[in-house]
Structure formats: structure tokens, C-alpha cells
Write a protein that binds this DNA or RNA. Sequence first.
DNA 1: CTGAAAGCGCTAACAT
DNA 2: ATGTTAGCGCTTTCAG
Lengths: 338, 338
Amino acid sequence: MKNKKITLKELASILKVSVSTVSKALNDSYEISEATKKKVKTAAIKYNYSPNLLAQGLKTRRTKIIGVVIPDMRAPFFIRVLRGIEKEASKKGYNILTCFSNESFEKEKATLEMLSQGNVDGILMSLSKETQELGQIDHVNEIMSNGIPVTLFDRVDDRIECDKVIINDFESTYFATKELLKAGARNILFISPISTTTIGKNRYRGYAFALREHGNLEEKVLSIEEYKDFSADLNRILSTEKVDGIIAANELTGISAVNIASRHGLRIPEDISIIGFTNGLLSMNSNPPLTTMSQHGKEIGRVATTKLLDRLNNSKLDYTTTVIETTLIKRGTTRLGF
Amino acid sequence: MKNKKITLKELASILKVSVSTVSKALNDSYEISEATKKKVKTAAIKYNYSPNLLAQGLKTRRTKIIGVVIPDMRAPFFIRVLRGIEKEASKKGYNILTCFSNESFEKEKATLEMLSQGNVDGILMSLSKETQELGQIDHVNEIMSNGIPVTLFDRVDDRIECDKVIINDFESTYFATKELLKAGARNILFISPISTTTIGKNRYRGYAFALREHGNLEEKVLSIEEYKDFSADLNRILSTEKVDGIIAANELTGISAVNIASRHGLRIPEDISIIGFTNGLLSMNSNPPLTTMSQHGKEIGRVATTKLLDRLNNSKLDYTTTVIETTLIKRGTTRLGF
DNA sequence: CTGAAAGCGCTAACAT
DNA sequence: ATGTTAGCGCTTTCAG
């Protein structure tokens, strides 16, 4: 009996009732008697009926799909966020349409345009690097003016009025730097491949502020444009300068720093302490395991999804910004007990 | 002028022509004169018209969306495949609806059901662990009988008739094992967290075959059920037995093996050689960097997408299985020159 | 070359 | 409590 898809109309004619009766029965309308509801529902199962989502969406203006725009799918952080989003969304009966902007403004814009063509009820996104460099926000505002709510996470823009979920970037590097200072480090290098993003800037500020507070210690900053040059750059710095602490603004550079320092003959954490960002698989499995600021990516995804779904059910809510606090996960690249 | 979304009907009334004329003009129908085509198209841009994908899909039975079902989003391999899929799909004007089965049969089944409700033109998927353990294939056959083509990748089932993209699992571990033998290893441990999947079984067979060929060397196999027990299990083996080579059937256990062996006081690769699977960030960034079998995940994704899209355009094609050959990436966990 | 009209599968007033 | 009907926005015969 389970076979080809069947339509409402066909089901109605099998049951010899009208389509609207079937539709209402399936949707548990108060207008329909319990008896027919039961009859319709069992028939629906028997004939393997399931509604055509396109038709339903066309009619109700609801697709139960939320679009997710991720800047970089290689970054473990975003993957964790995605996990959080997927879990929460599927719990609430929503599906996710995942798209990647690859840090490109044009791709991001094109993605939003396609998402605005009726497929999704709302959008979760993190701004691409290029978008933040260019300071563009029109494309985001435009999709919202089309009635599609957007919740931004991680990389946001103050000028966009919408729900946001961010981490306390400034404080996280501020505290990370203080930890290294407490452990005795005085020559702390800050490594960032995201110095052009809002979050990258805030992380730098936290680092710089801690140094200033601590007797105006000298800043050492390595901004990375291309990953391929990074190794050479860091090696040069380690050869020419004394460095006894490193703070990396993302996971990958943190891990690379561990490996490079280690090959450079430095003992970790005896000679140099290192703190990274994102508590992902890389950090857990490096040698030694990397002390890192956990951004609670899954939680960010979960909260962002909740906020978006809340808004879908009540568009009158005030816009809010939620800050997810980071946590320092102490592991082998920093001295114990500090 | 760029503002709210506008419909075909509205555009038609602005231009004082019929909706069908507008529709045909936009779709470059031969029935429409060049003059009106031009007029319509410029107006479409001026008034920021773009078609409602739901309505279009309802009518044409084409959504330009392909569903992707991934068993485990933490696995770097699948993420790489996803990248390949996304890139190829977006190049061809398709979007992807990404879903995760989390290695659960029920979730996989539910996902396929939802994907069969009209949202997607076709499906790319890799079977979940549980699905393979249970040997279930009905849910896949059912969605295909609903007219939605499926292309399986990596974890496939011979009993399902569809397009497939796989790697040469047997050969890859066969050659990997031979490499370790050539380097002098005689006590080679095979670690697998996927021993219940088809690919896991084939990888085991390749390993076993190489040992048998080489004078019936003794097999040592560690099958992992739970990651959390893994560390203890491996430590026990390393304490009680002589092991001078390890082949891990996936990336994560390969990396963990490196760390555990290293903490165990074994020098890598002098005392023990290790080969992992998947050429991901973890392997590149371990210490020492892991020698690994690259499965060319992006290529798998690209090819699978191509095959699916080809079938969407011509459902009469014969089903084919494409094998993507693995490549051994030699790095620091195996001795040079062997 | 253009337009009227039917209909994809569904929901929801509005009858009855 | 059930049915009739009018669309959602689009494509596509079929007429003109």
C-alpha cells in the first residue's frame, strides 16, 4: 500500500469527502468531528500521504526552512555553530538550508538574493570578512525589508538592526592576556588572521588593553593575510625576538603556533605559553593539547536559532543582543596553577 | 526603486501586458518579440522582480535544490565532501539543503521523508552507521520510487540501484599496510571506529590481505565503539604488546594514536609508524604531521554532484559507480625513503 | 506575437 | 460539521 506520493485531492476522492475536510482534519481543525479526523488520519497513513511542502509554503508563506549563511566552512568554530543550529532547528521542526559565502561579499549578496526568493522563513548569518572590510550592509537590510527576519551571530554590524548573538571578544583576550602575564610572560605576541573583522578588532583591543594596564608592555602583533606566509613570518619573529607568550585569535593559527614553536626548539609551556581560540578537535588533539578560549559555538548556534524562531512567531519583539561568555579551557600549552 | 518584492502579475499590470507575456519574455520564449522581451527585462530589473521559487517549483516540479544527507558533521572527511558538493552545485545554479543523520537510522529515514515532500530535485547521501548495521535500504528505495534520484557516496550499499561514488577502500589499506611492511614494521595494529560500515569492512580486508600475503603475520585489530574508551584501550595494548605500526581507518583515531603513542614514550616514526585516513586539518597540524591516505573528499563531492545533476537532466542514463583513488600523503609519522 | 485560462497542491474564508 | 470556492505566483497550453 505504501507507494507513490498521493495528493490531498486524491485522498479526498478516495474518502469521498471534500479536500477542505481532509485538509482541516489533518490540521486538527476544531471544525471537524473526531470521527472524520480519525478516519482521515488513518487513511493518510495507509495511503502514505504527506503534504507537498511547496504548495503548503506557497499558500501559508511558511516553509519551515531557515537559511544559514556561513563565511568559512573550514573553520571549526563555524561548524560547531552549525551543529548547534541544526540540532535546535530540527528539534523545533525546521530544516536548514546551508550556504557558504566563502568570505566573499559578492557570494554573500548573491546568497541572500536567492534566499529571498521564497524558500526560507528566516536567516541566520555571520558576515563575511570582505563584507566587513567594505562595510557593506545594504544587502542585509534589503532582505529584512522583504520581510525575512535575520539573526546575526559572531560577526555582526552595529548599524544593522536585528537580533544578534555575539561573544565577549574584548574580555576574552583581555583575560587570556592577563593569564599569560600572571604566569610571568612579558613578551606576548598576538596572532590574528581576522584583523579586519569586528571580532578581530575587539580581540586585539582586549589584548592591547591588558598590556597597557600592565605597565605599558610592548605590543607584538602578527596579522595574517595568507596562511601560506604565516609559517615563515612566525619563524622569523621567533628567531629575531624574544617571545614567551602567544595569543592566537583563532584555532588554526593557535595550533600552527604550537607546532612552529615546538620545531623551533622552544619547550611548551616551559619556554613559551600559548592560548588559542575555539575549543575544537584541533585544540583537543594537538601536542601538547592547546589551552584555548572556548566560544561555545554550539551554544551560539542554539541561541541564535531560538531567537530567530521566536521572532518568526512574534515579529513585534524588540531586537536584542545576546552575549555568550567565553571560557578558558586550560590544557598543556600553559603552565598549571597560574 | 529597489524595494519590496514584486510579483509577475504586478509587473504585468505596470507594463500593461498579460502575465503570460511577461513570463514568456523572462524565459526567453521564441513566441515573444525582441522588443517586448527587452522592455520586460529592463522593467524586471527596475522593479527588482525575481520569481517566487516556491510557485515556480510547484508548477515546474523543479526546485533547483539538492538535498545532502551527511552521517556525521564532525568528521572532517564529510566536511570536505560537503565543500566539493557546495562548490559544484552552486556553479551549476543549484542550492543545497544540508541535513545530518547523526549516524542514526531513524533520523536518516525521517530526513529522507521530509526531503521527499517536494523540496528537492535530487539527493546526495552517505549511509549512516546504524543503517549499515541494520542493513536497511527500503527508505532509500522508497524515495527513489517517488521519482527523486539519489546518488550515494562513500558509504553505499550494493543492493541499492543508483549512481555511486566510492573510494578504493580495500586497496588503500592494502597499500598502506604494505608501506609499513616495507619500512620494517611487523606488528601492525589496525584501528577502526567504523568496523560496522561497508567501507570499514573493506579497509579491514585490505589490511588483513596484506598481512596474509606477507607470511601470515598476526592481525591486531582495535574496533572502537565509544571514543571515550579508546584512549584506555590503546594504552593497554601499547603496554602489553609490541606494536611498531598503526593504521587508523579515520582521521580522528589516527591523530589520537599519534598523541597516545607519543605520551607513551614511543618515538614517531623511529619506534612506531602511523598512517591515518583523510587529509584534513588535523593530519596537517598534528605533531609530527600525520602520514595519511587522502580520500580526496572534495573530488568525491564534486563527482557525486555532477552525476546527480546529469541524471536530473537525463533520467535514462545507466547507473554507474565511480571509484576515486586514494593517495598516500607521506609526512612525519612514517620513515622517509621507504 | 500576445492574451485568456487552466491548474500545480494546498489553505481558509465563506457558505450551507 | 462539511463543502464550495477563491486564490498563493507561476507556467503553459490553446485561442485569437
